[in-house]
Amino acid sequence: MPEVTFKEKPVTLVGDDISVGDKAPDFTVLATDLSEITLSDSKGKIRLISVVPSIDTGVCDQQTRRFNEEAAKLENVEILTISVDLPFAQKRWCAAAGIDNVQTLSDHRDLDFGKKYGVAIEELRLLARAIFVVDSSDTVVYVEYVPEVSQHPNYEEAINAVKNAK
């Protein structure tokens, strides 16, 4: 597992770590209307999965807004922002922030995504900040586990991975 800290203190990530070349594990999360969403729902598209601890915090807010802006420039790409925030809070935040190009999804119910992608923080029941790019054939083509949860991911590398994915 990658070493990750939260406010400079080491945390334990639960689940399997994902590497470039892996088949992307399917998962079930909840949309803002409480419907179940899976990775296979967007089969045939390139997926950028932006993982944030909580949409209501500064870095998570900026990360989601950045990918919302980038989404408008990309074709055949789904951007999924996943956190453990309740779906109701995600819906309220998106409405207030004018976010309409990314899909916010909740892993609150059972941490299915967090465990399958190795980003569930055992001590906090939050998700570690990470980026995964999955190509149209469900192969992972980019992975970034951000070493310090309070820091930004590498936006440029993630967007380049999306542009280079097939």
Rank of each mutant, 00 (worst) to 15 (best):
M1H: 12
M1N: 07
T5H: 08
F6P: 00
K9R: 15
V11W: 08
L13P: 02
D17E: 15
S19H: 15
S19T: 04
G21N: 06
A24R: 01
F27R: 06
A31E: 09
T32V: 05
L34A: 06
S35K: 15
T38W: 14
T38D: 08
S40I: 03
K45Q: 07
S50G: 01
V52M: 13
S54L: 03
I55D: 13
D56W: 03
G58D: 06
G58M: 06
V59S: 10
V59W: 13
V59H: 10
D61Q: 07
R66M: 13
F67E: 01
A71Q: 08
E78N: 14
I79T: 15
L80K: 11
L80H: 06
S83Q: 12
V84Q: 09
L86D: 15
C94M: 12
A97M: 10
D100G: 14
N101E: 05
V102H: 06
L105D: 04
H108N: 05
D110I: 00
F113D: 00
K115H: 04
Y117R: 04
V119P: 02
L124M: 13
L124K: 09
L127V: 03
A128F: 00
A130L: 06
I131S: 11
V133D: 01
V134N: 10
V134Y: 08
V134P: 02
S137I: 11
V141K: 10
V141Y: 14
V143W: 01
E144N: 09
E144H: 02
E144R: 11
S150P: 03
P153T: 06
E157L: 12
A158C: 06
N160E: 15
N160W: 00
A161P: 00
K163A: 05
A165D: 07
A165W: 10
